[in-house]
Amino acid sequence: MAATSDSLAAAAPHAEEWRPARGRTGMACLIGMECFFFGTFIVAFLFYVGKDTTGPTGKTCLSIGPVVVWSICLISSSFTVVAAVKALAKARKAAFEFWLGLTLLLGGAFIYGTVMEWRGLMLEHELFISTNLFGSTYYSLVGFHAFHVVLGLTVLGLLWTLSKFGHLGPEDTERVELVSWYWHFVDVVWIFVFTSVYLIGTGILS
């Protein structure tokens, strides 16, 4: 049979049809995969709440006050990153860099908060990953989240640098928007982590 792609092109005239954009679909898939990854750590954390045989637990060594402050920083950075994307779409370079810079600062503040919390846990409560089940589940869950925040900050920082050097314009809006999707995801995961670790793990919600 001598079927060729030329004759196929002629076979049925069709207008261009809608397809979901590659980048968006890809980022959605990545986020979906990450949900299952974090879900597993959250399940492990919740499964082991209250099953420790020794040592400090969430009830005895976590204080919720500072975490609320740092969480507000992280959650608000979701709004600032939206503002940044909108500014980029309208080609307002200065506004874009301002909002992106603010996002970086808020995300950085959150990481600072995590570092200080870990410092306190290690120095004052002598809680390490090997201490007990709480240590194992807490450090891996919060640590993996912080790792994702750092990844996000790295990419956002890269965008900020690119923009400073004039390599980012409104034509890149979709790419920047995809990074903002990732950033939203990191924030949403934090809501679940916060609920598990600081509300359920400390006994505030039981």
């Binding site: 299952f36 990854f37 420790d52 007990n132 089940l133 589940t137």
Partner: peptide
């Protein structure tokens, strides 16, 4: 996408158990 995430997470836990002294799957510590 749905299945490999949990496997990776569980393997990370096991790696932590074996190399950092975590207790995810260690019945001696609960």
């Amino acid at each position: 996408l749905a299945a490999l995430g949990p496997l990776t997470a569980a393997q990370v836990m096991l790696l932590f158990d074996r190399n950092l002294g975590a207790h995810f799957f260690d019945p001696q510590e609960g």
